[in-house]
Computed example of a mutant assay.
Amino acid sequence: MTIEPTRLHILTYAQTLRGGGVELAMLRLAAGWIAAGHRVTLVVGAAEGPLMANVPAGVERVAIGSRRYLAMLALPVIVRRRCPDILFCPGNHYTAVAAWTALWLRGSRPPIVGKVSNAPDRADHGRLFAAGYRAWMALHGRFLDHAVAMTAATGVAAAAAMRMAGRISVIANPPAMPHPPAHPGVPAAPPVVATDRPYILGVGRLVVQKRWDRLVAAIPRLARRDIVLAILGDGPERPALQAQAAALGVADRVLLPGHAADPFPAMTHACVLALPSEYEGVPGVLREALSVGTPVVATRSSVAVDEIVTDASLGSIVDCDDQDALVVALDHWLADDVVRPAPVVPPGADSAARYLALFHSLVTA
Protein backbone atom coordinates (compact mmCIF):
# COMPACT_ATOMS: atom_id res chain seq x y z
CA MET A 1 0.00 0.00 0.00
CA THR A 2 1.31 3.45 -0.94
CA ILE A 3 1.13 6.03 1.83
CA GLU A 4 0.32 9.50 0.52
CA PRO A 5 2.62 12.23 1.80
CA THR A 6 1.24 14.71 4.30
CA ARG A 7 -0.43 17.79 2.82
CA LEU A 8 1.82 20.70 3.71
CA HIS A 9 0.95 24.29 4.43
CA ILE A 10 3.75 26.43 2.98
CA LEU A 11 3.93 30.15 3.76
CA THR A 12 6.09 32.45 1.68
CA TYR A 13 6.33 36.21 1.35
CA ALA A 14 7.33 39.17 -0.79
CA GLN A 15 7.50 42.92 -0.37
CA THR A 16 5.50 43.61 -3.55
CA LEU A 17 4.89 41.91 -6.88
CA ARG A 18 6.23 44.83 -8.91
CA GLY A 19 8.69 42.58 -10.74
CA GLY A 20 11.88 40.65 -10.16
CA GLY A 21 13.27 37.19 -10.74
CA VAL A 22 13.06 36.22 -7.07
CA GLU A 23 9.34 36.87 -6.87
CA LEU A 24 8.63 35.30 -10.25
CA ALA A 25 10.46 32.08 -9.32
CA MET A 26 8.56 31.99 -6.02
CA LEU A 27 5.24 32.16 -7.88
CA ARG A 28 6.28 29.37 -10.27
CA LEU A 29 7.19 27.18 -7.31
CA ALA A 30 3.90 28.00 -5.61
CA ALA A 31 2.04 26.89 -8.73
CA GLY A 32 3.86 23.55 -8.60
CA TRP A 33 3.13 23.09 -4.91
CA ILE A 34 -0.57 23.78 -5.37
CA ALA A 35 -0.72 21.46 -8.38
CA ALA A 36 0.73 18.73 -6.13
CA GLY A 37 -2.14 19.24 -3.65
CA HIS A 38 -0.48 21.40 -1.02
CA ARG A 39 -1.62 24.64 0.59
CA VAL A 40 0.26 27.88 -0.06
CA THR A 41 -0.13 31.21 1.72
CA LEU A 42 1.53 34.26 0.18
CA VAL A 43 2.12 37.27 2.41
CA VAL A 44 2.76 40.51 0.50
CA GLY A 45 3.55 43.91 1.87
CA ALA A 46 1.50 45.49 -0.89
CA ALA A 47 -0.60 43.46 -3.34
CA GLU A 48 0.51 45.42 -6.39
CA GLY A 49 2.63 45.09 -9.49
CA PRO A 50 2.60 43.29 -12.84
CA LEU A 51 3.37 39.92 -11.23
CA MET A 52 -0.06 39.94 -9.58
CA ALA A 53 -1.21 38.34 -12.83
CA ASN A 54 1.18 35.44 -12.15
CA VAL A 55 -0.22 34.55 -8.72
CA PRO A 56 -1.50 30.98 -9.15
CA ALA A 57 -5.14 30.16 -8.53
CA GLY A 58 -5.53 28.65 -5.10
CA VAL A 59 -2.88 30.75 -3.35
CA GLU A 60 -4.17 32.32 -0.15
CA ARG A 61 -3.07 35.95 -0.13
CA VAL A 62 -2.47 38.10 2.93
CA ALA A 63 -1.69 41.78 2.28
CA ILE A 64 0.02 43.77 5.03
CA GLY A 65 -0.91 47.06 3.35
CA SER A 66 2.44 48.74 2.85
CA ARG A 67 5.24 48.39 0.30
CA ARG A 68 7.89 49.46 2.84
CA TYR A 69 10.38 46.75 3.75
CA LEU A 70 9.90 47.40 7.46
CA ALA A 71 6.23 46.49 7.08
CA MET A 72 7.39 42.91 6.50
CA LEU A 73 8.38 42.77 10.17
CA ALA A 74 4.72 41.94 10.79
CA LEU A 75 5.40 38.48 9.35
CA PRO A 76 5.91 36.62 12.66
CA VAL A 77 2.42 37.64 13.83
CA ILE A 78 0.94 36.29 10.60
CA VAL A 79 3.00 33.10 10.85
CA ARG A 80 1.78 32.54 14.41
CA ARG A 81 -1.84 32.99 13.32
CA ARG A 82 -1.61 30.91 10.15
CA CYS A 83 0.49 28.07 11.63
CA PRO A 84 2.25 26.93 8.43
CA ASP A 85 4.33 23.76 8.35
CA ILE A 86 7.16 25.50 6.44
CA LEU A 87 8.26 29.11 6.05
CA PHE A 88 9.93 29.69 2.68
CA CYS A 89 12.18 32.72 2.30
CA PRO A 90 12.42 33.30 -1.49
CA GLY A 91 15.73 35.19 -1.65
CA ASN A 92 18.55 37.06 0.03
CA HIS A 93 16.61 40.33 0.02
CA TYR A 94 14.20 38.78 2.52
CA THR A 95 16.48 36.94 4.94
CA ALA A 96 16.38 39.77 7.50
CA VAL A 97 12.64 39.13 7.75
CA ALA A 98 13.32 35.42 8.24
CA ALA A 99 15.83 36.25 11.00
CA TRP A 100 13.32 38.53 12.73
CA THR A 101 10.62 35.83 12.51
CA ALA A 102 12.93 33.19 13.98
CA LEU A 103 13.90 35.52 16.83
CA TRP A 104 10.32 36.58 17.54
CA LEU A 105 8.76 33.10 17.45
CA ARG A 106 11.73 31.21 18.91
CA GLY A 107 10.75 27.61 19.67
CA SER A 108 7.26 27.91 18.21
CA ARG A 109 8.39 28.66 14.66
CA PRO A 110 8.14 26.27 11.72
CA PRO A 111 11.29 25.16 9.86
CA ILE A 112 12.63 28.01 7.72
CA VAL A 113 14.07 27.32 4.26
CA GLY A 114 15.85 30.14 2.46
CA LYS A 115 16.82 30.34 -1.19
CA VAL A 116 20.19 31.82 -2.13
CA SER A 117 19.30 34.33 -4.83
CA ASN A 118 22.45 36.47 -4.86
CA ALA A 119 26.15 35.75 -4.80
CA PRO A 120 27.58 35.50 -1.26
CA ASP A 121 30.28 38.00 -2.31
CA ARG A 122 28.88 41.12 -3.91
CA ALA A 123 31.08 42.98 -6.40
CA ASP A 124 29.42 46.30 -5.60
CA HIS A 125 30.51 46.37 -1.96
CA GLY A 126 33.40 48.43 -0.65
CA ARG A 127 35.81 46.94 1.85
CA LEU A 128 33.93 48.00 5.00
CA PHE A 129 30.49 47.10 3.70
CA ALA A 130 31.80 43.80 2.34
CA ALA A 131 33.11 42.87 5.80
CA GLY A 132 29.72 43.64 7.32
CA TYR A 133 27.95 41.63 4.63
CA ARG A 134 30.22 38.62 5.23
CA ALA A 135 29.45 38.82 8.95
CA TRP A 136 25.73 38.96 8.20
CA MET A 137 25.94 35.97 5.85
CA ALA A 138 27.77 33.99 8.52
CA LEU A 139 24.75 34.38 10.82
CA HIS A 140 22.31 32.75 8.42
CA GLY A 141 22.92 29.27 9.75
CA ARG A 142 21.51 30.39 13.09
CA PHE A 143 18.02 31.16 11.78
CA LEU A 144 17.73 29.11 8.58
CA ASP A 145 17.15 25.39 8.99
CA HIS A 146 18.13 24.75 5.39
CA ALA A 147 19.16 26.75 2.33
CA VAL A 148 18.74 26.10 -1.37
CA ALA A 149 21.25 27.19 -4.00
CA MET A 150 20.41 27.11 -7.69
CA THR A 151 23.73 25.77 -9.00
CA ALA A 152 26.53 23.62 -7.60
CA ALA A 153 29.09 26.43 -7.52
CA THR A 154 26.78 28.82 -5.72
CA GLY A 155 25.96 26.02 -3.28
CA VAL A 156 29.63 25.60 -2.39
CA ALA A 157 30.07 29.35 -1.96
CA ALA A 158 26.88 29.67 0.08
CA ALA A 159 27.74 26.77 2.40
CA ALA A 160 31.03 28.45 3.28
CA ALA A 161 29.67 31.99 3.57
CA MET A 162 26.59 30.99 5.58
CA ARG A 163 28.38 28.33 7.66
CA MET A 164 25.75 25.79 6.67
CA ALA A 165 27.80 22.81 5.53
CA GLY A 166 25.48 19.84 5.15
CA ARG A 167 22.40 22.05 5.12
CA ILE A 168 22.51 23.27 1.51
CA SER A 169 20.58 21.65 -1.33
CA VAL A 170 21.05 22.47 -5.01
CA ILE A 171 17.73 22.92 -6.81
CA ALA A 172 17.35 24.94 -9.99
CA ASN A 173 14.55 27.44 -10.37
CA PRO A 174 11.56 26.11 -12.30
CA PRO A 175 11.95 27.16 -15.93
CA ALA A 176 9.87 29.92 -17.43
CA MET A 177 7.48 28.85 -20.12
CA PRO A 178 6.27 30.89 -23.11
CA HIS A 179 2.67 31.99 -22.85
CA PRO A 180 0.32 29.90 -25.02
CA PRO A 181 -0.85 31.50 -28.27
CA ALA A 182 -4.10 33.39 -28.30
CA HIS A 183 -7.28 31.39 -28.80
CA PRO A 184 -8.85 31.47 -32.25
CA GLY A 185 -10.66 34.74 -32.74
CA VAL A 186 -8.65 36.51 -30.03
CA PRO A 187 -6.25 39.14 -31.46
CA ALA A 188 -2.59 38.46 -30.78
CA ALA A 189 -0.87 40.81 -28.38
CA PRO A 190 1.22 43.52 -30.05
CA PRO A 191 4.97 42.82 -30.15
CA VAL A 192 6.74 43.87 -26.98
CA VAL A 193 9.69 45.24 -28.95
CA ALA A 194 8.02 47.40 -31.60
CA THR A 195 10.79 47.73 -34.17
CA ASP A 196 11.67 46.26 -37.55
CA ARG A 197 15.38 46.83 -36.92
CA PRO A 198 17.68 44.12 -35.48
CA TYR A 199 18.08 44.50 -31.75
CA ILE A 200 20.05 43.58 -28.65
CA LEU A 201 17.72 42.57 -25.84
CA GLY A 202 18.03 43.18 -22.10
CA VAL A 203 15.51 41.77 -19.62
CA GLY A 204 15.41 42.90 -16.01
CA ARG A 205 14.50 45.71 -13.67
CA LEU A 206 15.95 49.14 -14.39
CA VAL A 207 18.09 49.27 -11.26
CA VAL A 208 21.75 50.08 -10.62
CA GLN A 209 22.67 46.42 -10.06
CA LYS A 210 21.89 45.55 -13.69
CA ARG A 211 24.24 48.22 -15.12
CA TRP A 212 22.18 48.81 -18.26
CA ASP A 213 24.24 51.96 -18.69
CA ARG A 214 27.05 49.72 -19.97
CA LEU A 215 24.84 48.59 -22.86
CA VAL A 216 23.67 52.11 -23.65
CA ALA A 217 27.32 53.23 -23.73
CA ALA A 218 28.13 50.40 -26.14
CA ILE A 219 25.51 51.30 -28.75
CA PRO A 220 27.42 54.15 -30.50
CA ARG A 221 30.59 52.02 -30.56
CA LEU A 222 29.10 49.02 -32.37
CA ALA A 223 30.19 48.24 -35.92
CA ARG A 224 26.57 47.95 -37.04
CA ARG A 225 24.77 51.29 -37.02
CA ASP A 226 21.31 49.76 -37.52
CA ILE A 227 21.27 47.93 -34.18
CA VAL A 228 18.70 48.89 -31.55
CA LEU A 229 18.88 48.19 -27.80
CA ALA A 230 15.60 47.14 -26.16
CA ILE A 231 15.40 46.61 -22.39
CA LEU A 232 12.27 44.93 -21.00
CA GLY A 233 11.72 46.08 -17.44
CA ASP A 234 10.96 49.08 -15.33
CA GLY A 235 12.49 50.78 -12.34
CA PRO A 236 14.10 53.92 -10.93
CA GLU A 237 16.96 54.06 -13.45
CA ARG A 238 14.68 54.78 -16.41
CA PRO A 239 15.26 58.61 -16.41
CA ALA A 240 19.04 58.18 -16.11
CA LEU A 241 19.15 55.70 -19.00
CA GLN A 242 17.02 57.96 -21.18
CA ALA A 243 19.26 60.93 -20.39
CA GLN A 244 22.39 58.88 -21.14
CA ALA A 245 21.00 57.74 -24.50
CA ALA A 246 20.11 61.33 -25.42
CA ALA A 247 23.58 62.60 -24.44
CA LEU A 248 25.21 59.93 -26.63
CA GLY A 249 22.96 60.74 -29.56
CA VAL A 250 21.30 57.30 -29.59
CA ALA A 251 17.93 58.09 -28.04
CA ASP A 252 16.21 56.67 -31.15
CA ARG A 253 18.15 53.42 -30.77
CA VAL A 254 17.35 52.72 -27.09
CA LEU A 255 13.86 51.35 -26.42
CA LEU A 256 12.43 50.95 -22.92
CA PRO A 257 9.02 49.29 -23.45
CA GLY A 258 8.53 48.43 -19.76
CA HIS A 259 7.78 45.12 -18.08
CA ALA A 260 6.86 42.19 -20.34
CA ALA A 261 4.74 39.39 -18.93
CA ASP A 262 6.09 37.07 -21.63
CA PRO A 263 9.59 37.99 -22.89
CA PHE A 264 10.00 34.85 -25.01
CA PRO A 265 8.80 36.32 -28.33
CA ALA A 266 11.26 39.21 -27.93
CA MET A 267 14.03 36.77 -26.97
CA THR A 268 13.35 34.58 -29.98
CA HIS A 269 13.76 37.47 -32.42
CA ALA A 270 16.67 39.21 -30.69
CA CYS A 271 20.12 39.05 -32.24
CA VAL A 272 21.62 38.55 -28.79
CA LEU A 273 20.53 38.86 -25.17
CA ALA A 274 22.89 40.90 -22.99
CA LEU A 275 23.18 41.00 -19.20
CA PRO A 276 25.83 43.52 -18.06
CA SER A 277 25.12 43.25 -14.30
CA GLU A 278 27.55 44.17 -11.55
CA TYR A 279 26.41 41.17 -9.50
CA GLU A 280 23.86 38.38 -9.86
CA GLY A 281 22.80 35.17 -8.20
CA VAL A 282 21.82 32.70 -10.90
CA PRO A 283 20.47 34.80 -13.78
CA GLY A 284 17.55 32.82 -15.15
CA VAL A 285 17.21 35.18 -18.10
CA LEU A 286 20.37 33.64 -19.60
CA ARG A 287 18.82 30.18 -19.47
CA GLU A 288 15.59 31.51 -20.95
CA ALA A 289 17.40 33.05 -23.92
CA LEU A 290 19.45 29.92 -24.54
CA SER A 291 16.30 27.80 -24.39
CA VAL A 292 15.09 29.52 -27.59
CA GLY A 293 18.48 29.46 -29.30
CA THR A 294 19.42 33.12 -28.71
CA PRO A 295 23.09 33.70 -27.87
CA VAL A 296 24.00 35.66 -24.75
CA VAL A 297 26.63 38.17 -23.69
CA ALA A 298 27.06 38.52 -19.95
CA THR A 299 29.44 39.98 -17.43
CA ARG A 300 31.08 37.58 -15.00
CA SER A 301 28.68 38.79 -12.32
CA SER A 302 28.53 35.50 -10.41
CA VAL A 303 30.07 32.05 -10.43
CA ALA A 304 26.82 30.75 -11.92
CA VAL A 305 27.31 32.56 -15.23
CA ASP A 306 30.07 30.10 -16.22
CA GLU A 307 27.77 27.24 -15.22
CA ILE A 308 25.13 28.48 -17.68
CA VAL A 309 27.28 29.70 -20.58
CA THR A 310 29.31 26.51 -20.69
CA ASP A 311 30.63 26.82 -24.23
CA ALA A 312 31.74 29.61 -26.57
CA SER A 313 29.04 28.50 -29.00
CA LEU A 314 26.39 29.69 -26.55
CA GLY A 315 27.67 33.18 -25.87
CA SER A 316 30.41 35.35 -24.42
CA ILE A 317 31.39 36.21 -20.84
CA VAL A 318 33.36 39.39 -20.14
CA ASP A 319 34.73 41.01 -17.01
CA CYS A 320 32.37 43.47 -15.37
CA ASP A 321 34.47 46.59 -15.95
CA ASP A 322 35.83 45.70 -19.40
CA GLN A 323 33.74 47.91 -21.66
CA ASP A 324 35.96 47.21 -24.67
CA ALA A 325 35.44 43.47 -24.28
CA LEU A 326 31.69 44.01 -24.03
CA VAL A 327 31.66 45.88 -27.34
CA VAL A 328 33.81 43.21 -29.04
CA ALA A 329 31.53 40.44 -27.76
CA LEU A 330 28.40 42.22 -28.96
CA ASP A 331 29.98 42.86 -32.37
CA HIS A 332 30.81 39.17 -32.67
CA TRP A 333 27.21 38.03 -32.11
CA LEU A 334 25.81 40.80 -34.30
CA ALA A 335 27.81 39.71 -37.36
CA ASP A 336 25.72 38.64 -40.34
CA ASP A 337 27.40 35.23 -40.60
CA VAL A 338 27.23 34.30 -36.92
CA VAL A 339 25.86 30.83 -36.08
CA ARG A 340 23.16 30.91 -33.43
CA PRO A 341 23.29 28.15 -30.80
CA ALA A 342 20.95 25.21 -30.76
CA PRO A 343 18.25 25.57 -28.06
CA VAL A 344 19.37 24.40 -24.62
CA VAL A 345 16.79 22.65 -22.44
CA PRO A 346 16.84 24.43 -19.05
CA PRO A 347 16.97 22.47 -15.79
CA GLY A 348 14.32 22.69 -13.10
CA ALA A 349 11.32 20.80 -14.48
CA ASP A 350 11.18 18.84 -11.20
CA SER A 351 12.03 21.78 -8.91
CA ALA A 352 8.67 22.02 -7.13
CA ALA A 353 8.74 18.30 -6.33
CA ARG A 354 12.31 18.49 -5.05
CA TYR A 355 11.42 21.37 -2.76
CA LEU A 356 8.45 19.39 -1.44
CA ALA A 357 10.71 16.42 -0.68
CA LEU A 358 13.02 18.77 1.25
CA PHE A 359 10.08 20.31 3.13
CA HIS A 360 8.73 16.88 4.10
CA SER A 361 12.17 15.86 5.40
CA LEU A 362 12.33 18.92 7.64
CA VAL A 363 8.77 18.63 8.91
CA THR A 364 9.14 14.96 9.81
CA ALA A 365 12.67 15.24 11.27
Rank of each mutant, 00 (worst) to 15 (best):
G32D: 05
L27W: 11
L11A: 04
W136M: 12
Y13M: 01
V297C: 05
P174Y: 05
P184K: 02
A30K: 08
G107S: 13
H332C: 10
T101E: 01
R221L: 15
S169D: 15
G45K: 01
L334N: 00
V79P: 09
T364H: 13
P120H: 10
V282Q: 12
A298E: 06
D336W: 08
T101W: 10
T268Y: 12
L29M: 14
R214D: 12
T41E: 02
L24W: 06
A189Q: 14
W136R: 11
V285S: 06
T2V: 13
C89P: 07
L256E: 00
I227L: 13
A289G: 00
A352S: 14
L87V: 03
V339E: 14
R39E: 15
L201N: 01
V113W: 04
R211E: 07
G185Q: 10
A149L: 08
M177D: 03
F359E: 08
P181Y: 08
V40E: 11
P50Y: 07
V216K: 06
A289R: 09
V55L: 07
M1Q: 13
W100M: 10
D331A: 02
E237I: 06
Q323H: 15
A172T: 03
A35K: 14
D321H: 13
R354V: 04
M72V: 00
V156L: 12
L241N: 04
A158Q: 07
V79S: 07
V345A: 15
V22Q: 10
H38A: 06
I78K: 11
V192P: 04
E60T: 15
L51W: 09
M150Q: 15
L75G: 05
T151R: 10
L11S: 08
